[in-house]
Each structure stands twice: as C-alpha cells, then as structure tokens.
C-alpha cells in the first residue's frame, strides 16, 4: 500500500533514535487517530441490516476471492454447519457470519457479519507504534504491511478485536484485516462483500445517507428493529453500522461507550511513557533491588 519499505523505516528510526532519543522520549506522542476534522463529510460506509441477511455466506467467499486467497467452491458455502459455533475473522478471510436466534420468527434467524468496523477514530491507528495504520479520508482504515513490525499492539487496542496475525508464517508475518476493499473502491468498484450480497443486506453509501436510511427503516418498521444504530456513535462512530432485531448485547456486540477508543489506548501508552518518568522510576526501582540484594549477598558471604 505505501511505498516506504521496512528498511527505510528502520534507517529513519535509527537516525532519529541516535540524535533525538531524549527529545522524543520527553515529548508526549501526538494522537495519531484521525481527528474528525480530516474526515470527509462524504466518507463512505456500509449499513449492515442483520434482519435482512439470509446467511448465505457468499460475502465470505467473495472476501477470500478478492483478496487472493483460495476461496474454494462457492456452493460449499451453503453448508450451515459452521453456524454451530461462533467464528471470528481469520487472516485468510476477513469476514465471517454468525447466526443468532430470532425469537420473533424462529424460522428466519438473524445473521451478524463480523469484519473491521473502520472506526472514525480508530484505536489501531493510534496504537500502531510504527505508523503503519492510516484512516483514509473516505473511511477505510488501512495499513502498510511493509511498515508493520508485527508487534500486534493493534490487536490489543481494537475494541472489536478485529486485526489477526499470520502466526503460521515464520518469515515476515503480517497483520491482516478487512481493508474495506481499498483497491477495488479506488477503481470505482464496490467492496467485494457488498457486490455479491444477494439481498443487499449490506448497503454501501455515504455514511450520512446510511444514517438517514437506517432511521427511516426503524421508524417504518418498529416491530422489526430495535431503535438503535450500532456504530452511529459507538467509540466515536464507525464506518460500518448495524441494524438489528434484538439487543446488540445478545448478538455479541461489545458494550462500548461513545468515547473514541484511542482515548483509552493512548492514555495507557502515554501514561507508561509520560515524560519518561515511569521507565526511569522502574529502572530506579530495579536498580535499588539489585543493589540491596547484592549487599545482602556480600554480607552473608562475609559472615561465612
């Protein structure tokens, strides 16, 4: 995605590190999460209607296909046995569907598509120590595999636990997650999953239009939907938003406040490294302990 290689990055870091280690350590890192101001008013998003989705899993197939993985025979995706257990996105398939009971009409269960939510204020961008992650103006949260050093901070920071890691790769393992089909959309195509969905449970459009549409649906069909758009305000708003027929907590959505997630990760990170005091304090403490135990050993040796 980016043009900078890991070698370039290391060179730059080494140069900076040699001359300005003290200075950088003493200035708290600026928030890297996109501030709302740089986001385009016309940024894109997807509205996922979990009451419309029929659970055909064609989005899973298409996702693998457009990202160059072996997607296998499309008809095998009609196999519903996979709904027996909860699944998470993998590093070779950035989206999965999970099934949930519909007590209003047991014959048509709900299906929840799981993938990166593409937060407006993404925690991964903020947590990434090498600046590999970017929130684009148009909505997608993308990352530069060449910059990635595999620290997996993004995995810890993500409130939705989306980024996955290529643990099976010994050499240059990468972080993997939904990239909102960044390359396809740049070509004027729809994201793969949106393109293939037979029922258009995934509506792709400007985020503000999607909110209007979602509100209209909830107003028109109050029996069908609960009155909430997940992702409208959660963690500062997300590009992917959800409508549901029952409480989001019953659909395994995390309970999140409206405060942007970077607030949490940044305060922890900044807390640890604030003005270099905590590391110095830690070294001082460790040094103290070392000194005390050394003295003890000396004493006990003398006694013998």
């Amino acid at each position: 995605m980016g043009k900078q290689t890991r070698r370039d990055f290391l060179k730059v870091t080494a140069a900076i590190g040699g001359t300005a280690a003290g200075i950088t350590a003493l200035t708290p890192k600026q928030a890297k999460a996109a501030s709302p101001e740089i986001l385009s008013e016309d940024r894109m998003g997807v509205l996922v209607d979990t009451t419309v989705c029929i659970g055909c899993r064609r989005c899973e197939w298409m996702c693998k296909k457009v990202h160059g993985y072996d997607a296998g025979d499309i008809e095998t995706y009609s196999n519903e046995e996979v709904f027996g257990r909860m699944r998470r996105p993998q590093n070779e398939g950035y989206t999965v569907l999970n099934r949930y009971d519909n007590t209003k009409n047991p014959i048509t269960p709900y299906h929840v598509k799981v993938q990166c939510m593409h937060c407006d204020r993404p925690a991964c961008v903020s947590a990434c120590i090498v600046g590999a992650f970017t929130k684009t103006e148009k909505g997608a949260v993308i990352w530069d595999t060449d910059k990635c050093i595999g620290c997996r901070y993004c995995m810890v920071a993500c409130p939705f636990q989306i980024p996955t890691f290529e643990y099976d790769k010994a050499i240059e393992p990468d972080i993997r997650k939904c990239d909102f089909c960044y390359e396809r959309t740049a070509e004027g195509l729809l994201p793969g999953c949106v393109d293939i969905c037979p029922v258009e449970a995934l509506t792709y459009g400007k985020r503000r239009d999607l909110i209007t549409i979602a509100e209209k649906r909830m107003k028109l069909y109050p029996d069908r939907y609960i009155n909430r758009i997940f992702g409208h305000t959660e963690v500062g708003g997300t590009s992917w938003m959800y409508l549901a027929g029952k409480d989001f907590s019953e659909l395994d959505f995390p309970k999140l406040s409206d405060a942007p997630a970077p607030g949490v990760s940044e305060s922890i990170q900044h807390g640890i490294f604030a003005y270099f005091v905590p590391p110095l304090a830690l070294y001082a403490l460790l040094g103290g302990i070392m000194w005390v135990t050394k003295n003890k050993e000396k004493k006990s040796g003398e006694e013998e």
Binding site: I54, P198, V199, E200, Y204, G205, D209, L210, I213
Partner: peptide, 11 residues
C-alpha cells in the same frame, strides 16, 4: 440507495 437494487429486491 434508499431502495434496494433489483438483485436485492428479487432475492
């Protein structure tokens, strides 16, 4: 995008 497209409407 306020109404589903043809493919979605049929399905």
């Amino acid at each position: 995008i306020s109404t589903p497209d043809l493919k979605a409407a049929f399905h």
